[in-house]
Design a protein around this nucleic acid. Structure first.
Lengths: 211, 211, 211, 211
DNA sequence: GATGAATGAGCGTTCATTCAT
DNA sequence: AATGAATGAACGCTCATTCAT
């Protein structure tokens, strides 16, 4: 019966939601399985019917949240411009980066959770776990494909951008170190653009190397 | 008597060494104070005469090891070239980055430890704890001062380079993801050079922006 | 199911019993939670499902035992005389005091436990915890109500009697200091009677004051 | 040399003073030997040259402080009346009790310390430890000797008064239970007077018994 | 499938006591 | 006599995991 399946999904969802709240509130290490189930109004044992342990649920959530952030940014972008094809890739990516920064600014605890727990393996494999969602790489591929410019090693490029974004924002947003986010934003975007240039197949990268 | 002081230093050193081995072998979370002391052949209580808790010894070690890596790189650089003043800053930093990558390659567990536990706060304040060592920022300042070029916001620039280096190397060296380190090296160095350009006061940054 | 509830009650009871034995044998300070659970043949963690800490179980026991002593005395009294109404309050209370002294004589370790750990707060609030038992104060109220004489500030009067009984018996019974219990008994009872007189509303107290 | 003796006395005194402050501030159980020595600016090992353990110093202090309270009261009494012989014993003892209550009111933490740790054995043997001080019992003896009235079993009488005073004041002063100290005072004094009557050899006690 | 009582290893931490200096 | 570094047993407590119901 589909009903049972639905019920199971609901339970799992409740656990994920409960864990997410606690992970962002107190951190992963300070959250116990007991905390998660009692917040989700379930018995402790039930947890183990759905997840192997705390770390499985953490990875699940990190992947999902990272994807959500990306999808939010992508969705905002699509609302702004009707067709991507008309747009410059750099503009697009700048928009995405700015939007992601804004999301982090609004929820620093989400940033803390993501930054401390996201690994590239998890991020790039979101697709495997959440079949219904498009993968972040897919979106990028689409974007880059639509562009006039040609990029080599797209995955590596995205990797560098994501890591730079993730790792630099952590201290800047949470501790205003070494500078505040407003001041940092423009330099981060510039750095991201430079990475894009660097991977442009004929023009950008070469210019820099010969400079 | 200095003898007692010496003995204390030895004890502290033994604890640090023991902790370092275990942290890199098993990770911080999986290492207990008990593990540390029994490996150092001491009573558990002795630990608490020297450190507040596991996290104090971790921070101590992260700071020290990060500094060591940097000092090693700097020392190699000085062995190679007699005088910095003759050198191009970009060459210098490229050298440093390459050397650090090599150190990480040789000791992936050290990379794992550093990458997972280094925070900018700890890194930029190493000087406070180890008065006898020069701070990483000092070395950079010297390097940049000696250069013909002028850089704005040097601290922020270093922050971006360090974070990029740290966060990208983690997956590349430990999991060969998304590419292997040999392949990645040149792009990482290119990206670092671009960050340097970006912060050049008159020429580099502007060139890119107008490009 | 009631079965589980029953089992839980048994477990709790086993812990209480084990703790009581150890508290009277070795004292509260010298008894650890570990001692309690291992004597009750349970895992340490189980303790914390039933009590917050050692002190909660101690208070529980002090209240219960103090109540038991009182109930025993009351029960003996009722066995002896059919109806309280016929009796003189002073006779009754004298009986109760004598009976309690006898109980203490028979179990000095119980006296030690009670005397060292009973506080008026715990004693006067026994009712709250053990709903099924009548409170010591209730019994006294009944007794005093049934009497022809009228007493002011009954709670205070009972407080003084209980404290005098408790604190003087400790040294007398356990260390025969400054005199033995047999010799002490009649003076203690006399003192209790004097306290009763003192709180008699019209006659007793006044007589003394004018004396 | 007497100088060394003096130095030792000073050290011991410093330890006692430090312990007293900590015992009243935090309680005996919560005070460690380390706390005591560090407050007294000594090494931990030094403690063991003067006292066997924490409990020896506690007993020492309880005895001394109980005596001090009594001596204070006695001294006040002597300041008020030139000669005891003219006075009524009951007046004297009433004065002492009131004065002791006042001392407790002014220093509830002292009351807590005394009440929780005083045992009759310690109290009645103060003389043994502090040779230079008169014993509480001596003072009472003097007082009772000077009186026209004759008392039987003086030690027992004092015991009952001291225990009643000590045990009832604890809850009344520290927790205002079951009534406040101001309200309680007159009933406590009345009860003490009744105990005196009770031990009067011919008149008081008999009156009550025949009543 | 869901429960939650029970487990017990393991944690971080304290501290009385010893003893070489 | 005085020190204080070192000890290590013992503490209270947590929590992932199991399993009978």
């Amino acid at each position: 019966m589909g009903k049972i399946e639905d019920k199971k999904k609901l339970k799992k969802e409740a656990l994920l939601e409960s864990a997410m709240i606690l992970f962002t509130e107190k951190g992963v290490a300070e959250t116990s399985v007991s905390d998660i189930t009692s917040r989700a109004k379930m018995a402790k044992g039930t947890f183990y019917l759905y997840f192997k342990d705390k770390y499985e649920i953490r990875d699940h959530l990190v992947a999902r949240k990272a994807n959500e952030i990306f999808e939010n940014a992508h969705h905002s972008m699509q609302s702004k411009w009707q067709t991507i094809s008309q747009m410059d890739v750099e503009e697009c990516i700048t928009f995405l980066v700015e939007n992601i920064i804004d999301q982090f600014k609004e929820s620093p605890s989400l940033l803390r959770f993501i930054a401390k727990n996201l690994s590239w393996g998890v991020f790039s494999n979101i697709r495997i776990k959440d079949l219904d969602n498009r993968n972040c790489m897919d979106v990028f591929d689409e974007l880059l494909e639509a562009s006039a410019k040609v990029y080599r090693q797209k995955e590596l490029m995205v990797y560098m951008i994501v890591e730079l974004l993730n790792s630099t924002c952590y201290n800047v947003i949470l501790y205003h170190m070494p500078v505040g986010i407003e001041q940092f934003k423009k330099d981060l975007i510039l750095a991201v653009r430079n990475i894009l240039h660097q991977f442009e197949d004929s023009a950008g990268a070469k210019q820099l190397e010969t400079a």
